[in-house]
Every structure is written in structure tokens, then in C-alpha cells.
Design a protein around this nucleic acid. Structure first.
Length: 417
RNA sequence: GUGGGUGUAGCUCAAUGGUAGAGCAUUGGACUGUGGCUCCAAGGGCUGAGGGUUCGAACCCCUUCACCCACCCCA
């Protein structure tokens, strides 16, 4: 093949009809975001790189090797956003939102960028729909956010989803836990894989997340975050659980569940799907009570989640696609003029119209109408031009009649029944 | 960043060193102004790209690019 331009690795075109899944996911998400009274925020895809370094954490892979980072012409170090929470917090602070009303419920939908090796469920440009709740410490905010996530995922009929839940404590109790965990892990290093030995120092909680059987067996008796929660975190977690129980929201406690980003505290949750390949987290979130102040604001508790749109799309059926209401078959230039005029009238009546062009035969245009799954065709041929009529035909059963311009819309509506 | 797999028609795939094929799709015809079903026919390829071995390469070797899957990590 001749040399051609091609899309950048990990950056995909989303074409029809596949794009229908994305539209469906987005519209269902917007519907529930609206019902829960969340307001949309659109933030830029570019931010100062330091925003992510500060919020996501210096030791994380996202910051160390996955950011699209570059120096712009003015010498600023910028980055394509790898996630949506940090920009939302930045916007929250930049516009002094907390001084008007600290309680905010925001949602966003848009592309994110991470320079990783693509694989199933992972792309360098991918899309997330997410929410952020600012200013509410109450565990019922956690409950509502989890309920909202579940509403969206269930409504999209994603198969085989499990809601996993855990609490990873706060700056008061987590250090104690981490100390215990590290000492436990240091006692069983001979049973851990090479990666996990390294993780003991870099990110000890991730050892619990290792999929290797040997490591899972070795860490079966490891200290659990939930056993080390301080009284405040413990009360928060137990109110959260009893609230979910009372509302019959299903979930499973997974004490191995940790989050990769540094800013999470207390509640963490993840929706995982079978059949999603190795990257099976379709939605994940948690509390980040210390991020706002970490970025220079007043102490502001917050919780949110992000849903991977591509990952959801891989797990849902293609929504039904429907063709145009009317396909016009005009066989001469004069007929095409009439067709465009009539199409304009029908479109005003909310009918989707497509017009066949070119010196084609009626047969070829009929075939095209059928292929596009049109509901009806309008034939304007020599006969129709001569007597000023239109031939309207319904494709499902072949019912056909001749009408005039004045009664066309009425006939179309009748045939739509 | 590491490892494995795959690149042949628009799509899904055959052809294991000797003339590049099929199904589906597309276009046209059978049916001169009427779709779907059936039948017939046609168009469509530098076999991802570049180099090498050979009388001869889709096939063997080297390089490179892309895609897929997995690791790392994450939505």
C-alpha cells in the first residue's frame, strides 16, 4: 500500500455504527447525571503538568511514564490530561467556587490521554464520564455516588458486573496500617514475585492486588485495611455499608481493593466486568478528602468516580440503528429540485430524509434505500413530473400510493403508523 | 518500557518455494420505472513497507511499521 497518513498509535477513529454505542452511553449517563442533579463542567484537555504531578502523585506510573508531557513555545510544561479529577479540582479552586457554595456536584465527559502500550480495553486516547461531589463528608454522599454509578451501568445492561468496595483509611490511620503491612510483607518476601518485592517499598498496598496465585496465597493472611481504620473512618465505612444494605445496593467487600492514585482516602470502589479481558475495571472511584487542600484550597471533602467509556462500549450490544424515514428517488434534474424542496418540508415535520443523486436507475436507488434501512421511498420519475404527483412506497410491506404535494405529509404520517 | 501473536481484495480468511483464490460486500444484468430472495457476470491486490537468499518468494532470512494479546499499570 502506498504511504499514507495513519492515526497515531492508540488514538482511534470511532466510526458509524460503532459510534452509536458511544452516543448511547453518553446519553444514558447524561440522563442519570441530570436526574441526580449533577452539573456539567467542561475543562481543557491541556493543563500545567504540575497539576497532575501534585495530585496524582510523583511515584505513580501515570506521572512517571504515562503522561503526554511537553514544553510549549512559551516554555510552560504542559500535559494532556490523564484523568479528570485534578482538572475539576483546579477549576473549583480557580473560580473560587467554594466561597459561593462549597457543595458542588459536577460531571464531565471527555477524552483522556495516557502514553501506555495499547491492549484490550486500553487506549492512549480514551474517554471517561465521571462525577465529582465537593464539600460533603457524609457517607450518604458516597452512597448516592455508588447508586448513581450502578444506575448508569445497569441501565446500559453491562453484563457480569461486580461492585467491589473497600475503605483505605485516612492520614490518621493509614500510616499505621502501612507499617503493619510492610512488616508482614517483609516477612514473606521469599513467597512473592519479583514485581511484588519491588512494590513493598514503592506501593505496598498493590501487593494485595497482584493476580499471581503465589502472591495471592502468600498475602491471604495479610493485615486488612478495614482492621486498622480509625474510629472516624470506621464509622464512615459502617454507615456506608448499612446504607447500601438498606437500599439493597449489591456490593462485595474486597479488602484487596486499592487505588492507584495517591489522592484517594477512605471509600474506594470499583465496578469490574467479566469478559473484559485483563483490564476489567469499567468504573472506579472513591473519596479524595485531602486533594482540594493539597492543591491549595480549604479542607474540602470530596468523592467521585470515572467510567471508562470504551470499556463499557466493549460490553454492550449495538443499539438499534434506524435508517431515514424517507429516501427520495428523483430521476432527473427537475425531479431532484422537487425532491430537495419536499425534503425540506418533511424535515420541518421531523422526518429524516435522504436524497438519491446521480444518473442512477430506480432499481439501484431502491437497493440503496433498502440497504440504508429507509422506512419509505418517494419516487419522482417522468410520470410524476408530468402529472405533478409523487409515488410514496413503504418498504416494509411494499404498500404504494400516488399522492400530490399538498397531501404528502399526511400520507407519510399515515404510512408511518 | 518488556514479552508473545498477526499483517494477503472493502470485510473474514485460504494458498508452505513454482500462474494469488474463496465467501461476504460493492457494481451491473436476468427484471427497459420499483428494494429484500435466487441465478449470472464484472470490478477490486506492488501479499504492510524496505532489503537479502533463490532460476523463481505471500511463503525462507534481516530490518522497519502497524495492529492484537499479555506484563507493568490503570478507566
Amino acid at each position: 500500500m502506498a504511504k499514507q497518513f495513519q492515526s497515531v498509535q492508540g488514538f482511534n477513529d470511532i466510526l458509524y455504527p460503532e459510534v452509536g454505542k458511544f452516543q448511547h452511553i453518553e446519553s444514558v449517563s447524561r440522563q442519570y447525571f441530570g436526574l441526580f442533579n449533577f452539573k456539567e463542567v467542561k475543562t481543557p484537555v491541556l493543563e500545567q503538568a504540575g497539576l497532575f504531578v501534585r495530585s496524582i502523585g510523583n511515584g505513580t506510573d501515570i506521572v512517571e511514564k504515562e503522561m503526554y508531557i511537553f514544553e510549549d513555545k512559551g516554555g510552560e510544561i504542559l500535559s494532556l490530561r490523564p484523568e479528570g479529577t485534578a482538572p475539576a479540582v483546579r477549576a473549583y479552586l480557580e473560580h473560587n467556587i467554594d466561597r459561593q457554595d462549597a457543595i458542588q456536584k459536577w460531571f464531565y465527559i471527555g477524552p483522556m490521554f495516557r502514553h501506555e502500550r495499547p491492549q484490550k480495553g486500553r487506549f492512549r486516547q480514551f474517554h471517561q464520564a465521571g462525577v465529582e461531589v465537593f464539600g460533603i463528608d457524609d457517607p450518604f454522599a458516597d452512597i448516592e455516588v455508588i447508586l448513581l454509578a450502578d444506575k448508569i451501568v445497569s441501565s446500559l445492561a453491562v453484563k457480569g458486573v461486580t461492585v467491589r468496595l473497600n475503605s483505605i483509611g485516612c492520614p490518621a490511620c493509614r500510616p499505621v496500617y502501612l507499617r503493619e503491612l510492610k512488616s508482614y510483607l517483609n516477612g514473606i518476601t521469599d513467597r512473592l514475585c519479583e514485581d511484588c518485592k519491588r512494590r513493598i517499598d514503592t506501593n505496598p498496598m498493590r501487593v494485595l492486588d497482584c493476580k499471581k496465585e503465589g502472591c495471592m496465597a502468600a498475602t491471604a493472611g495479610a493485615p486488612k485495611t478495614t482492621d486498622y481504620l480509625c474510629s472516624v473512618c470506621s464509622a464512615h465505612f459502617s454507615t456506608l455499608r448499612s446504607g447500601l444494605d438498606a437500599l439493597r445496593q449489591g456490593y462485595t467487600i474486597d479488602t484487596r481493593l486499592v487505588r492507584g492514585l495517591d489522592y484517594y482516602s477512605r471509600t474506594v470502589f470499583e465496578f469490574t466486568a467479566e469478559d473484559a479481558g485483563a483490564q476489567n475495571a469499567v468504573l472506579a472511584g472513591g473519596r479524595y478528602d485531602y486533594l482540594v487542600e493539597l492543591l491549595g484550597g480549604a479542607h474540602t471533602p470530596a468523592i467521585g468516580f470515572a467510567m471508562g467509556i470504551e470499556r463499557i462500549a466493549a460490553l454492550i450490544d449495538m443499539p438499534a440503528v434506524h435508517g431515514p424515514d424517507i429516501f427520495f428517488i428523483p430521476i432527473t434534474e427537475e425531479a431532484r429540485v422537487r425532491a430537495i424542496g419536499l425534503a425540506d418540508r418533511l424535515r420541518r415535520a421531523d422526518k429524516t430524509c435522504e436524497i438519491g443523486y446521480g444518473e442512477k436507475t430506480i432499481k439501484s436507488m431502491m437497493r440503496r434505500a433498502d440497504r440504508l434501512n429507509a422506512a419509505m421511498v418517494i419516487i419522482i420519475g417522468k410520470d410524476e413530473l408530468r402529472d405533478g404527483s409523487i409515488t410514496l412506497k413503504r418498504l416494509s410491506d411494499g404498500l404504494q400510493e400516488k399522492v400530490d404535494d399538498a397531501t404528502l405529509l399526511e400520507a407519510v404520517r399515515r404510512m408511518s403508523q
